[in-house]
Amino acid sequence: MACHDAQTVVRLDRVSKTYGSGESAVHAVQDVSLELAPGRFYILMGPSGSGKTTLLMLMGCLLKPTSGSVFLFNEEVSALGEGKLPRVRREKVGFIFQGFNLFPALTALETIEATLNLKGLRGEAAREKARELLTHLRLEKRFHHLPEDLSGGEKQRVAVARALAGDPPIILADEPTGQLDSKSGRLIVEVLRDLAHNEGRLIFMVSHDTRILGLADRILEIDDGRLKDQS
C-alpha cells in the first residue's frame, strides 16, 4: 500500500496496540491514523499513561501494532519480520531519550563514533564525522569528556548528535527536555526545530512541557490511546 501523499514520511493507518489480553488488556493506542511530512517539527502532548511512548515506539519500529499498519517511506514496516527491523532503524530513525542513555565508559566523541561504526562508517571517516556532528552541536570542547563530566544539557546534545549519526531522516525524541533546566531544554528544542527546518528531517517529539509548544509546526494530543485533537 502506497502513501497517500508523496511527501509523507511516516504514515499510521488505523493503528492500535493492546498489551495483555482479556480483562487485564491495556489498550495503549487505539485506532490512530496519522501522516507526518519531512521538514516539520511535531510535538505530541498527553498525560502520563496516555500512549505517547507506545506511539513513538510504533513509529520507531520498536513495537509492532496489534492491528493497523505503519509505513516509513512507503514501506510497510509493521509487516516486516523482526530480523529486518534493525536495518530500518539503522537507516531511517534516530532516537533521543529523556534519560540520555549514554555509555558511561565512552567519551562524547567515542559515543558518536561507535554509533557511526554501527551504521557502517569506520575508521578516520567515522571519527571526522563524529567531530563534525559534535561541533555542529557546539560541543567541540567536550570531545574527550565522559558523560559524568558533562552537564545535563551537554549530555542531551551528545544524545542529539548520536541520533543524527548516520543521517537518519526521522528523529524521534521522548521528552528530551525532561531532565533539563528550562534554558537547556529550550536550547535542545531549538536545535531539534532547526534540524527539521534547515535539514528537512522529520522531528517527532513527545513532551509535557507547555512552554515549548510555540516552537512546534504541529501539536498532537493523545489521551487514553486516542489522538484527540490535531492543530
Partner: peptide, 18 residues
Amino acid sequence: EHLKEFGTFKAMGASNWN
C-alpha cells in the same frame, strides 16, 4: 548495569549479534 545502553544500541539498529 548497562542494559539501558545496550537497549539504546538496539533501538538505534544494533542487531542481537552486534
